[in-house]
Amino acid sequence: MGRRSWVGAGLGAALVGAVGVGLLVAPAGAAAAPVLPPVSPEDLVSSVIAADAPALAGEVEVDNALGLPAVPGVPQLANGTSAIRVWSGGDGRGRVALPSADGERTLVSDGTTRWAYDSRERTVTRAPAGEGPDGPADAGPDAQDPTTAATQAVATLRQSSTVTVDGTAEVAGRAAYQLVLTPLPSERTLLREVRVAVDAETRLPLQLTVLAQGSGEPALQVGFSEIAYGPQDPSLFTFTPPPGTTVEDAPARDGAQPEGERQGTTVGDGWDRVMVGQAPQGGPGQQPEGEARPEGAPDLSALGTPVSGPWGTGRVITTAVATVIVTDDGRIAAGAVPQQVLTEALAR
């Protein structure tokens, strides 16, 4: 081998290296918007409601810039990007894996039982299927004619927002319609726009993007980064508690939740709706934005900045898309609104 060919080989290898680095560094790249037949928002919403849940395997990427305080055990809530692996049998059975750096939380629904496994604690939590929050939501739309339901839903939305199908996009390699909700100018809200990308073929919502005022980057983007439709291995949807783990039955959550909601009232409607309620006194309670830990009050009192006004004194917690005020006398006001709207609601 002559010196010349060695130089050639060296250059070639260097090229391979450069291309390899390029492949590693290059982002997936935004593909050109696919061309799809136009569709009205009503038709799009009704087709989404009418569509059957398909069998699929996919990876959901959560890009979170909500500015929520970090909640232990649920890294997906804190700022940053996380991936969730999802399998669905299309018939109420499914598996969700929430991987973390050195552990994983696995949720399996085999049609009759929901299992939750936490690899760090090595505990299995068991709950009968259908009583969780997803049950009624799945059953609800089926009871109604999809077209009527869609027309009603879009009409309700139109009272406070502009609803459009704004072009197309490619999400996880699938051509998708973009359904865009924009608050009307009269709405006093922190949100600028909510986009839902809907698979043009299967009419499955693929991506949810929430844009807040004053920021070009999405405050929250949840969507498939990979998706493959098709029947899944049935063994994915069964769960046998591994040896050496403790199995416990889930505490009845549905008793505590309606209680918290019963105490709350809403002020206003549309985008500037404000929930006003009583802060939980140590017991489990659910806040509309889901940022309170179950232990509630002690955590909240450490967060936020003090505010006061004619309505009293308290602490305000501001995130990119929502504001929460916890008053010292135990009231909570929360909404996707600026602080001023909350104080007005509290002053009533």
Partner: peptide, 26 residues
């Protein structure tokens, strides 16, 4: 250690390592 074995990260880190191998060898 995850059950449906996700190969994505293993493959991409191996590719990255191979790039280092090529550059180092050259």
């Amino acid at each position: 250690l995850r059950d449906p074995l996700p190969l994505g990260d293993l493959a991409s880190s191996s590719l990255r390592a191979l790039v280092y191998v090529v550059l180092g060898s050259v």
